[in-house]
């Protein structure tokens, strides 16, 4: 059964590219454009991995990560944070908050694919 990836970003173009990329690799993909929608879709689809943008309106990626990591029923869920915040200290914060990986924008598509495969393969 194909692994399920939820892509969460408020930039439609990056969502489109990532969705295309992941579908080509055989993953089932769902997309959300903000944090609240992401939480709803996690409950609805129980994805294996969330590609989560940090800077989003209403509820940012750190808040989403905090909610997801606070739930015992989602302990197998993997989270990769994607962010335009490029400082080292932000990366430390993301990983401390419970993300499995942290990728800074702009990124190479191959790098995203590799990280996704590593994180899902490491289960």
């Amino acid at each position: 059964m194909a692994k399920h990836i939820l892509i969460v970003d408020d930039e439609p173009n990056i969502v489109l590219s990532l969705e295309f990329l992941m579908r080509k690799r055989g993953y089932t993909v769902t997309t959300a454009s903000d944090g609240e929608e992401a939480l709803r879709l996690v409950d609805e689809h129980k994805p294996d991995l969330v590609l989560l943008d940090v800077m989003m309106p209403r509820m940012d990626g750190y808040q989403v990560c905090e909610v997801l990591r606070g739930r015992d029923d989602l302990k197998d869920l993997r989270i990769i944070m994607l962010t335009a915040k490029g400082r080292d200290v932000e990366r430390e914060k993301g990983l401390s908050m419970g993300a499995d990986e942290y990728i800074t924008k702009p990124f190479s598509t191959q790098e995203v694919v590799t990280r996704v495969e590593q994180v899902l393969g490491g289960e």
Partner: peptide, 12 residues
Amino acid sequence: TALRAPLASLRA
């Protein structure tokens, strides 16, 4: 920060 988002979309 503002340059990173369009650059990410462009590169992807």
